[in-house]
Structures are given as structure tokens and as C-alpha cells.
């Protein structure tokens, strides 16, 4: 996993609620056996017509917006557990998703992919969406060590919560496998003392 520290970028607004992982990456693209390349099919059915031509009204096709932060409506990433959704966002160049609520499995998958799920309040989300739509060049700074999303033009810094352990992992590019494999003696001891096993 790549290290995540500070991000100076702009945002891409997608103000829809309950965006499910079937929209982020439709099931028919899950046939690959590697992690790479899912970005081309990110939001495929919203982004392209059946004949493969881009839909001009979808934000990822708009020349107005670019950046490494996707700013999306409440309850982002609900539905299927497919980690491919996080891989697709990452592969398409996103490094953080801002929303006022994330589905649990997506949140975990994003953290394991090196994609920051950055939760703000409903009011902050509304302000950010409106701000980006008004000014697509609006600079955003994601400071993970300080746990803030800053909008320098507004002199504003929105704080966000992140699990202390997960924060360390992201900053250093560590993942849970290293940690868990090192727990082997404790795990084996646990297996020995289990009263029941069938």
C-alpha cells in the first residue's frame, strides 16, 4: 500500500445519496483476477452509453472538474462488499472520498486500499458540494496527520475522525496482514485453549 500524507488537490462533486458499489463498479467487470485496471470502468453505466460513448452530463466526463478527491452524497459505498469499488476509485486517480456517511465494508476496504474515506457533517458536505460546483478550481488540502480537510480560500479547516491505528497504517503504508502474521503465537495459544471446536 502506498503511503498517504498530505494531498493538495481539487474536488469532483457527485451529490447523490446511497451510491452503491454496483454503480461504482458494475458486477460484470469483476471477472479480472488482478487488482489493476478497474478505473476505466469506474461508474461505467453512469459514465458511458451502451455504445461506449461518454455521457456528457456525467461529472467524470465534464471538463469542468478534476482532482483526487471525490465529494459524494450520504451513505457512500453501500451494498456489495466488493473491494473492487475502492480499487476502481484508486485506479482512476482518487485518493480520498468525502461524504457525510460511509457504508462499513466500503470504509474498511478503502482504508485497506490506501483510499481515505473522509467523513464530514451533512452541513459541511453541502457547503463543499456547493463550493466546488461554484468554483471547480477550489483548492482542497487533505492533511491526514492533522486530520483536517482545509479549504484555504475560505480559511476553513474541517476536522475528521479516523481510527488511530488505521491512520498510522495509511501514513506509513502498512497493512493488517503484517500485523496479524506477527500475532501468530497469540493466535496459536488461543486455538489451544478453546473449550469447544467442532
Amino acid at each position: 500500500m502506498e503511503k498517504f500524507q498530505t494531498l493538495h488537490t481539487t474536488g469532483v462533486p457527485l451529490p447523490l445519496e446511497n451510491i452503491d458499489t454496483d454503480q461504482i463498479i458494475p458486477a460484470r467487470f469483476l471477472k479480472a483476477t488482478t487488482r489493476e485496471g478497474f478505473g476505466t470502468n469506474l461508474f461505467c453505466d453512469w459514465r458511458y452509453r451502451a455504445d461506449g460513448t461518454p455521457k456528457a452530463d456525467f461529472v467524470l466526463n465534464s471538463p469542468r472538474y478534476a482532482g483526487q478527491v471525490l465529494v459524494a452524497g450520504k451513505n457512500f459505498g453501500c451494498g456489495s462488499s466488493r473491494e473492487h469499488a475502492a480499487w476502481a476509485l484508486y485506479d482512476a486517480g482518487f485518493r480520498a472520498v468525502v461524504s457525510s456517511y460511509f457504508a462499513d465494508i466500503f470504509r474498511g476496504n478503502a482504508l485497506n486500499t490506501g483510499l481515505l474515506p473522509l467523513q464530514v457533517s451533512d452541513a459541511e458536505l453541502a457547503r463543499l458540494l456547493a463550493g466546488i460546483e461554484a468554483d471547480p478550481q477550489l483548492a482542497l488540502v487533505v492533511d491526514l496527520p492533522a486530520q483536517t480537510l482545509q479549504v484555504p480560500a475560505w480559511g476553513a479547516a474541517f476536522g475528521f475522525a479516523i481510527d488511530a491505528y488505521k491512520k498510522e497504517c495509511l501514513i506509513n503504508g502498512y497493512d493488517d496482514i503484517d500485523f496479524l502474521v506477527n500475532q501468530k503465537p497469540a493466535i496459536e495459544a488461543y486455538e489451544q485453549q478453546r473449550a469447544w471446536a467442532w
Binding site: 462488499s81 466488493r82 473491494e83 473492487h84 475502492a86 465494508i105 474498511g108 476496504n109 485497506n112 486500499t113 491505528y165 497493512d175 493488517d176 496482514i177 500485523f179 496479524l180 502474521v181 500475532q183 501468530k184 493466535i187
Partner: peptide
């Protein structure tokens, strides 16, 4: 998620 599938494969545990 798939990263966790790998974790369980490697340790039979999750954090």
C-alpha cells in the same frame, strides 16, 4: 473485502 480475505488466509483472524 478482498484484503481481509487475504488476512484471514494468512492468520485466521481479523483486526
Amino acid at each position: 473485502g478482498t484484503s481481509q480475505v487475504a488476512q484471514v488466509m494468512a492468520s485466521q483472524c481479523l483486526l
